[in-house]
């Protein structure tokens, strides 16, 4: 039998790093997006759609949204862990959060590739 010590084994380090990596991705995209929108000045449907029809922006937008959903998972999960004490209710909230976020990711694919 392996005696696993629950301290100092870096449990949670993965989420800690992902929270920061996704934050950096979103921060960079936010700046790029604001610069692109500022430069294009989309005032019509065609111009607005054109921004997301561009291959790079489509990829970057999808990466941003996936980062947002993963970032939201870690952040919202932390909120449930801090404030929702009954185990069953907490588990239910976590499952519901993960479920809607996975659904949003599918929705994001549909929005970007069916436009």
């Amino acid at each position: 039998m392996v005696n696993r010590v629950l301290v100092g084994a870096h449990y949670g380090l993965k989420d800690w790093i992902i929270q920061r990596a996704t934050a950096v991705i979103m921060a960079v995209y936010t700046v790029v997006f604001l610069v692109v929108v500022g430069a294009v000045g989309p005032d019509s449907f065609e111009a607005w759609r054109g921004i997301f029809a561009n291959g790079f922006m489509k990829f970057a937008t999808f990466l941003f949204l996936v980062s947002l959903f993963y970032h939201a998972w870690i952040g919202v999960r932390d909120i449930w862990m801090d404030y929702v004490k009954p185990d069953g209710l907490r588990l239910l909230m976590m499952i519901a959060t993960a479920a809607v976020l996975v659904g949003y990711a599918g929705w994001a694919v549909q929005i970007l590739w069916r436009m």
């Binding site: 939201a72 952040g75 919202v76 949003y104 929705w107 994001a108 970007l112």
Partner: peptide, 27 residues
Amino acid sequence: SGAAIFLLLPFLLWLLQASLTSGETFA
């Protein structure tokens, strides 16, 4: 602010979808 953005995600995704689908939905 993080929690509020999370709660408003369906509205924002709907807005993005409507704005990109057609001229009518954009309007």
